[in-house]
Nucleic acid binder design. Sequence first.
DNA 1: GCTTATCATATGCGACAGCATATTATTGCG
DNA 2: CGCAATAATATGCTGTCGCATATGATAAGC
Lengths: 136, 136
Amino acid sequence: MERPDLAAMLYPLVRELIALEMPILEGHDVSMWGYSVLTALDDTPVRTQAALADAIGADKSRIIGTLDELQQAGLIDRTPDPADRRVRLLAITAQGRRVRRAVRTEIQVQEEQVLTALAPADRKAFLRILQELHSR
Amino acid sequence: MERPDLAAMLYPLVRELIALEMPILEGHDVSMWGYSVLTALDDTPVRTQAALADAIGADKSRIIGTLDELQQAGLIDRTPDPADRRVRLLAITAQGRRVRRAVRTEIQVQEEQVLTALAPADRKAFLRILQELHSR
DNA sequence: GCTTATCATATGCGACAGCATATTATTGCG
DNA sequence: CGCAATAATATGCTGTCGCATATGATAAGC
């Protein structure tokens, strides 16, 4: 069974996708980490910043700046938890949601372009399998 | 059509795979770039170092150290081209080939572990589609 | 022969990553 | 109350990356 390594095939693909995403993210004035945060918050609310960092695989000390920017731009709310004043409750704002959705739409349009190389059935299968692997 | 971004699914997967590869590479005293070079040279000979760097998506100035190490370890040959003495002809050695194959075997065993989450048919489909996307 | 291009190589720069650690506020427990 | 644990935050260190640029050898075209 002679095949290239998984990583050897996936890595360039990821590189390509990221390169496609960059201009889109810049167009909406969000960083990659920022977009990652918006996505995490839109999908599932998170109570602490450390938990958020963990969820998106970021460093808890390095995520602060990202949160500052997002808050500054009005894309997230960061309110102290009245029950535990050490904790900042994180929530995406309506505007944050709009930005996130707009970015995601544009990104997925680009992604479909990349997948055009595949037969329609393969494209569907690829996405389905990938989601399975991802939600594992 | 509600799905996570491709990159959002692929990135953690790549991270996981790389984390699995690291100990294997260390066990054989090759760096990631080194392994990448060995793979490229074993699959298709390359004439110039710049072309090699390009082929594996590396920086032509940063690849030198990697080549030095590989040569030092006897895994590649770097001989001046008699026809054009600016050029160093790159070739993998028998030992380099052995190392490359050993590493690849171990890596692919690990990769199969990751893919165990999938049904056998899906695993095959995934690899097939990925190869198609990769060789595009 | 002179100039321009090409190749390998070296080096400096700025960005960013992961990691560790320190600080400060706050909580909860004994 | 006193103390250990936890959350957010700041900061320093180190390694790596991509990028630009320089240099020295050599080749090739004019």
